[in-house]
Design a protein around this nucleic acid. Sequence first.
DNA 1: ATAATATTTTAGGCAAATCTAAATTATTAT
DNA 2: ATAATAATTTAGATTTGCCTAAAATATTAT
Lengths: 223, 223
Amino acid sequence: MDNLSTTEENYIKTIYHLQQSDANVGTNEVAAKLNTKAASVTDMLKKLNAKQILNYEKYKGFSLSDEGQKIALGIVRKHRLWEFFLVEKLNFRWDEVHTIAEELEHISSGLLVERLDSFLGHPKFDPHGDPIPDSNGKIEVQPQINLVDLPIGSSAKVSAVGSQSSELLELLTHKNIAIGTSISVIRKFSFDNSLEIETNASIPFTISRELALALFVTLLKEN
Amino acid sequence: MDNLSTTEENYIKTIYHLQQSDANVGTNEVAAKLNTKAASVTDMLKKLNAKQILNYEKYKGFSLSDEGQKIALGIVRKHRLWEFFLVEKLNFRWDEVHTIAEELEHISSGLLVERLDSFLGHPKFDPHGDPIPDSNGKIEVQPQINLVDLPIGSSAKVSAVGSQSSELLELLTHKNIAIGTSISVIRKFSFDNSLEIETNASIPFTISRELALALFVTLLKEN
DNA sequence: ATAATATTTTAGGCAAATCTAAATTATTAT
DNA sequence: ATAATAATTTAGATTTGCCTAAAATATTAT
Ligand SMILES: [Mn+2]
Ligand SMILES: [Mn+2]
Ligand SMILES: [Mn+2]
Ligand SMILES: [Mn+2]
């Protein structure tokens, strides 16, 4: 069926991710994500269309086929398992792992992925809180909301970060917030949209709207 | 210095290995190892010569430069560390790991290699008994000889295998021989060049010359 | 509805890595 | 020393992925 090049895999994964949030993805968006040009994207669209990996009609649009979706999920699975490995076993920080996983995700051995998965104890989420598809491509979706949407008084657990930047990690480390940390919102200030929050075992403190927007949480209990 | 492609790295590593046993490596040998043609090798020689990775004079020959040697050792280091990882952590057999390591050795992150090395406890030898170069490219050479050259009565320890085939592993497993196993040669039969040997805790048995040729040992004591 | 703008596609070319077939140089056997 | 053979290099194509510039189509604004 398929022996895909690294380049083809990167296109497939990128199109998959873009289609998650935006149903009508265009060549320019893909080009921007892959640091290439729209003309190159068109070339690849034709190639992937010929391989039945996506459905493409010129000038009308394109989307991954079922087969393409499956391939994409396989790459995402590998990417996130390797990220987990790098953080849990090799002591990388989560702001360092994406680039390396971008290469590791293209190692072809299927057996390797499954052995790695076992070795890691079948993790469900990567270091950024993103779900790891299982070997069938199923994703466990945890109902999560943005911290800015968490009602005052509700308690929640940080489940994912919206950015993988060192800057975010630096701030979170300083504020003692990590994935798994319990948070409840005490007050919101309309002047600058900052939030007063309380975490596990500390006195309340204030965080910016920017920071809150970068945090996703799962509800624990309502008030 | 350089950002080398996977293809370039494979050429460099192959030339390095060939030059270990044969000082005058030719384009045909390289081509055979890389499943390509001599004409393609010539093209790459010119390219690597331009990059100062090897010294090349047309029709006269070629050999790795010091820089090239260093690059080769870096790739060998990665290859063998990953093989060790696959066997020790992911429970692969040593006849399964080469192909996978052939891909993993091209992952570029230098930090990854060093972290992996630490995680694995700075192993000195890969699962086939081949030495793992350290981060400076130094190789710990252990004085080893072929089992057929082991004098009768001498005791030795299996240190490396000369083939990575499943067939060899199957036979070794059946005979309860692994890297680390102690062996002494009791008798040699000139009719078929078979050897009677004794291992750790078993009664003596006979092995073929083919098998003996595939085993390398380090001397323990002489008689 | 038409014009202006944005998006997408095509045309034509380039670089890396490969190939086959032919030419060149080196080696060897007589 | 010459001829036969082997090894190596060049010539000319091919494939993949990428590019710029221009053409075609779609979208939007008037
Ligand atoms: Mn990638
Ligand atoms: Mn991630
Ligand atoms: Mn390789
Ligand atoms: Mn090995």
